[in-house]
Each structure stands twice: as structure tokens, then as C-alpha cells.
């Protein structure tokens, strides 16, 4: 009986330690999320040329965590900061989509400067105007300036995949918002 009591106390102590750690982690996550959200808001506002005040919608995508709606006279637009990662490097870009899912603007915010793949040339413009019914280019060869994309690069395909997913997601969000 006494051994059981001791065991119970030990288990409770262990649970308390883990509970405390969970609380600590949740607090840290909330703080980080809030700070990251504020920074992304600034980047999107800079790209869109107007302030972003609406609450972001959380999404679960490996490349993006939240989408900011930008209500406008000609229908809603959506802004997101996307993270692109391939064997060729890492990049972070702010993107602006129309409610139909079409990519209206995109700008590289910063990149893993050691690997310049995302940074070379203005190859993001190959994706502009795509989305909605007009699919993103699948091969670098069909892009506007293939040389700037350093051939059929993995980063190009990765970016096309991310933008396609985002476009689909924003179309759904746009429909939900009416």
C-alpha cells in the first residue's frame, strides 16, 4: 500500500514537471506566433501598398502558416509569406493573390544567401498572372527566362508546387468569404 502511494506521488511529480514544460512551450509558441504574424503583416502591407488589419487565417501547409485577407473594392485579395526550401537553398517571399487564386505580386524578402538559387534573376515573374484557371508552369523550360532559373531546377518546381497549393487554398478561402 505504502509502495503504491510512493509510486503515485512519483507519477504525479513527473506529470507536474511535464505539465509545467507544456505550459512553458505553449507560452513560447504563442509569443513566437504573435511576433511572426506581426512581421508577416508588415511584409505583406509593404508589398500590397496598404495596411493589413484583418485577422489572419491559420493554415497547415509546410510552406506557409497563415493567410491575411485584404478586403478591397474590387473583391478580396489575400497575402501570405511563403517559405521555399529545396536542395538548392531556402527563400522567403511575400505573395499577393486575388480571390480567384491568381498570383498578383510576389517579392523575395530574404534568402539563404549562401545558396543563391532563389535570388538569381527575376524569375519569380514567371509565376505572375498564373493561378486560378491558368496553372503554374511545371517546367523551368516553359518559364519566361529559363536561363535565370538555372535550367530545370528543383527550386523552380518546388516554388510552382507551393504556389499551386496556395492558389487552391486561397480560392477556397475566397469562396468561403463570399
Amino acid at each position: 500500500m505504502a509502495a503504491r502511494k510512493v509510486s503515485l506521488v512519483e507519477n504525479l511529480a513527473a506529470a507536474a514537471i511535464m505539465g509545467f514544460l507544456s505550459l512553458l512551450l505553449v507560452t513560447a509558441i504563442l509569443l513566437t506566433e504573435s511576433a511572426a504574424s506581426s512581421r508577416e503583416r508588415v511584409l505583406i502591407a509593404d508589398l500590397a501598398g496598404r495596411s493589413v488589419t484583418a485577422k489572419p487565417s491559420a493554415i497547415d501547409d509546410p510552406a506557409c502558416s497563415r493567410v491575411f485577407p485584404l478586403p478591397g473594392k474590387n473583391g478580396d485579395e489575400f497575402g501570405a509569406v511563403i517559405y521555399m526550401r529545396s536542395r538548392s537553398g531556402t527563400g522567403r517571399a511575400a505573395a499577393l493573390f486575388a480571390g480567384s487564386g491568381q498570383l498578383e505580386a510576389i517579392r523575395l524578402v530574404d534568402g539563404d544567401s549562401a545558396r543563391l538559387d532563389f535570388d538569381q534573376g527575376d524569375w519569380f515573374s514567371s509565376f505572375l498572372g498564373k493561378g486560378a484557371d491558368d496553372a503554374y508552369p511545371r517546367q523551368a523550360a516553359s518559364a519566361r527566362d529559363p536561363a535565370a532559373v538555372s535550367g530545370a531546377s528543383e527550386s523552380f518546381a518546388e516554388t510552382a508546387g507551393i504556389l499551386e497549393r496556395m492558389s487552391l487554398l486561397i480560392r477556397t478561402l475566397g469562396k468561403e468569404r463570399g
Binding site: I17, M18, L21, A28, Y83, R85, T90, R92
Partner: peptide, 28 residues
């Protein structure tokens, strides 16, 4: 299990910190 839990918590706290101060390195 407790030491592994603590180790996981420390690693996640550090990941969060890096995501905040150096997001591109964190994603990379």
C-alpha cells in the same frame, strides 16, 4: 522518459527562438 521530455522541450524552445530571430536559417 522525463529526460527525453525535457530534451524535446529544450529543442522546441530553441527552434521557436530561431524561427523568430533567423526565420530563413530556421526554415533551411
Amino acid at each position: 522518459p522525463l529526460s527525453l521530455g525535457i530534451s524535446a522541450a529544450l529543442a522546441l524552445l530553441y527552434s521557436d527562438l530561431i524561427a523568430l530571430v533567423a526565420p530563413v536559417t530556421g526554415i533551411g
